[in-house]
């Protein structure tokens, strides 16, 4: 099924792509940017491996998008790959946000800027929503939908603590995937 060889990601490319995403992702939505660049545009990683990275990055402690970048870099090129992804996604934005902090200090507040910031934050979120919708459209059968909806309701709507929720849903989902694979 996945016999077509994936293009190999060079370390310099990983650094370059993650730096570009780090600087372009105004308003956040980094999972959306990473899906676009790593899966859709460059084909470095399969969609399922990418989604596994999202789940892993959220279930393990630590900021999600940094975890996802580390996962992608490490799966592609081991420790050096992870280091390149980490530096790219965090280095330039770190300096940029300190520049904004300076600006904020000089202006004596975020007045005026705050309104535009709200719009940019909403537009940035659209990147995350887009990757959610794109991957949801590709789910086949009833069980992935049931699992996705239950996860969303439990954590997003009911705001239940994540660990007990995934402790129940992850094994159930893997069992369902295994059963579906046998009957396929």
């Amino acid at each position: 099924m996945t016999t077509t060889p994936r293009p190999k990601a060079r370390l310099a490319d990983i650094l370059r792509v993650f730096t570009a995403m780090g600087m372009a992702s105004f308003g956040g939505g980094l999972p959306g940017w990473m899906h676009r660049e790593v899966v859709l545009k460059r084909g470095w990683m399969s969609e399922e491996s990418f989604l596994a990275g999202i789940a892993l990055g959220q279930v393990l402690p630590g900021p999600n998008s940094v975890n996802l970048a580390l996962y992608i870099g490490q799966q592609l090129r081991g420790w050096p790959g992870a280091a390149c992804a980490f530096l790219g996604i965090l280095g330039p934005p770190f300096l940029f946000i300190l520049g904004l902090a300076l600006l904020y200090g000089w202006m004596g507040g975020a007045a005026g800027l705050g309104v535009v910031l709200a719009g940019v934050a909403a537009a940035g979120l659209a990147n995350s929503l887009t990757v959610g919708l794109r991957t949801a459209r590709r789910m086949r059968g009833w069980w992935p939908w049931a699992v996705a909806v239950l996860t969303f309701l439990a954590i997003g709507v009911l705001r239940l603590p994540m660990i007990p929720v995934v402790l129940v849903l992850v094994p159930a989902s893997i069992a369902l995937a295994w059963r579906a694979g046998r009957h396929a």
Binding site: L51, A55, M139, V149, I174, A177
Partner: peptide, 16 residues
Amino acid sequence: ERGLAPIAVGLIFAGV
């Protein structure tokens, strides 16, 4: 991976 995928999709929407 196949089992984690729908969990990830649900988490993305919850995160938004």
